[in-house]
Measured scan of single mutants.
Amino acid sequence: TFELKGKVGKVVKIAEDHYLVEVEGDKWIAYSDEKLSLGDRVMVVDVDGLKLKAKRIP
Rank of each mutant, 00 (worst) to 15 (best):
G39Q: 09
R56S: 06
L50T: 09
D26S: 14
K10F: 12
E34Q: 08
Y31F: 11
R56T: 05
V8L: 09
E3Q: 04
I29Y: 14
L52Y: 02
K10T: 10
T1W: 15
I29P: 11
G49E: 06
A15H: 14
W28N: 02
I29V: 12
A54M: 14
M43D: 05
I29M: 13
V11H: 00
G39T: 07
V21H: 00
K35L: 13
V47L: 05
M43N: 04
K27E: 10
G49A: 05
L52I: 15
D33E: 10
L4N: 04
K10C: 13
V8Y: 09
K35W: 10
K53M: 07
I29A: 10
G6R: 01
V44C: 04
E3V: 02
I14Y: 07
G6P: 01
K5S: 10
L20H: 14
D33I: 08
A54F: 06
W28D: 01
D17P: 10
K7I: 02
L20N: 05
V21R: 00
K53T: 11
L50C: 14
E16G: 14
D46W: 02
E22Q: 07
L4F: 03
E34C: 07
V44I: 15
E22G: 03
A15L: 14
E3A: 03
L36D: 00
V47Q: 13
E3M: 02
K7H: 05
V45H: 03
G39C: 12
K13C: 10
Y31Q: 11
A15C: 11
K10G: 08
D40S: 05
F2K: 15
L38S: 05
H18R: 07
A15K: 13
L20A: 05
L38M: 10
S32W: 01
A54Y: 01
M43H: 05
E3D: 06
S32L: 03
K27H: 10
S32H: 02
K7Q: 07
V47N: 05
I14D: 08
E3I: 03
K53N: 06
T1V: 15
S37L: 14
L38F: 10
Y19G: 01
K53S: 06
P58V: 10
P58Y: 11
L4W: 03
D26C: 14
K27T: 09
I29F: 14
R41H: 15
D26G: 14
G9L: 07
G25R: 07
V8W: 05
E3S: 02
L38D: 07
L52D: 00
V12D: 04
V21D: 00
L52E: 00
I57P: 03
I57G: 02
G39H: 13
L20T: 11
D26L: 14
E22H: 07
H18S: 10
Y19V: 07
L50F: 14
G25K: 05
D48P: 02
D48Y: 09
A54P: 01
V8I: 13
I57N: 04
M43G: 04
D48A: 06
V45T: 09
E22T: 11
K10I: 12
V47M: 08
K5R: 06
G25Q: 08
H18Y: 12
D33H: 07
K13V: 10
R56K: 13
Y31I: 13
G39D: 14
Y19D: 01
G6H: 02
E34W: 04
Y19F: 09
K55Q: 14
D48Q: 11
I14A: 11
Y19H: 02
E34A: 06
Y31K: 08
Y19A: 06
A30G: 09
A15V: 15
D33S: 07
V42L: 03
K27C: 09
G49R: 04
D17Q: 10
P58M: 09
L50I: 10
K35R: 14
R56Y: 08
R56P: 09
S37V: 13
I57M: 09
D17N: 11
V11C: 09
K13W: 12
V44Q: 01
A15Y: 14
V12R: 04
Y31S: 12
V23H: 02
D17A: 10
D48R: 04
D33G: 06
E22V: 12
V47T: 07
A54I: 15
E22R: 07
L52N: 01
D46F: 03
D40W: 05
D33F: 06
L36Y: 03
L20Y: 12
W28E: 02
E24D: 08
D17I: 09
G9T: 01
I29W: 10
L20Q: 09
K27P: 08
M43Y: 06
K51N: 09
G49T: 03
V44S: 01
A54G: 04
T1Q: 15
G25N: 09
V12A: 06
K55Y: 03
Y19N: 02
Y19P: 01
V11L: 04
K10N: 12
K51I: 13
E24Y: 06
E22L: 12
S37N: 11
D40F: 04
E16I: 11
L4T: 06
K51W: 07
D48L: 08
L20C: 10
L52V: 12
Y31L: 14
D17Y: 09
I14P: 01
K13N: 12
V42E: 00
A30E: 01
W28V: 02
P58I: 08
S32P: 02
R41D: 14
G49K: 05
E24L: 11
I57D: 07
K27W: 10
D33P: 07
D48S: 08
L38Y: 09
K55A: 14
A30W: 01
K5C: 15
D33Q: 07
L20S: 07
I14S: 08
L52W: 02
D46V: 03
D46H: 05
H18Q: 11
T1G: 15
V8T: 14
R56V: 06
E24C: 15
K35I: 13
E16R: 12
V45P: 01
V47D: 04
I57L: 13
V44D: 00
H18W: 10
V11T: 05
V11G: 00
A30P: 00
V23W: 02
Y31R: 06
E3H: 05
R41P: 14
L20D: 06
I57K: 04
F2E: 15
S32M: 04
V12K: 05
K51E: 08
G39Y: 11
K27Y: 08
D46T: 03
K5W: 15
D46A: 06
L38P: 10
V42I: 15
P58S: 11
V42D: 00
W28Y: 14
V42Q: 00
E3W: 09
I57Y: 11
G49F: 04
V42H: 00
D26R: 13
D26W: 13
I29D: 11
E24S: 07
V47G: 05
R56F: 07
R41Y: 14
I29G: 07
D48K: 06
D48E: 12
L36E: 00
D17T: 12
K7E: 06
V21G: 00
V8E: 14
L50A: 09
L50R: 09
K10V: 12
P58W: 10
L36F: 05
K53D: 04
I14H: 07
V11Q: 00
V45G: 03
F2P: 15
V44T: 02
I57C: 15
E24W: 05
D33K: 05
I14F: 08
G39K: 06
L50N: 13
R56G: 06
L20M: 11
V44F: 14
D48G: 03
W28F: 08
K55H: 05
V47H: 08
H18M: 12
S32Q: 02
F2D: 15
S32E: 01
I29E: 14
A15D: 12
K27L: 09
G49W: 03
K27N: 09
R56N: 03
S37G: 12
E16V: 12
K55L: 06
L52T: 02
G25P: 02
E34R: 03
L50S: 12
D17L: 09
I14T: 12
L36P: 01
V11F: 00
K35G: 10
A15N: 13
L4E: 08
V42R: 00
K55W: 03
L36C: 09
V11D: 00
E24Q: 07
D33C: 07
V47R: 06
V42N: 00
V45D: 05
D17V: 09
E24I: 09
G9H: 01
G25W: 07
F2G: 15
V45S: 04
A54W: 07
K55G: 08
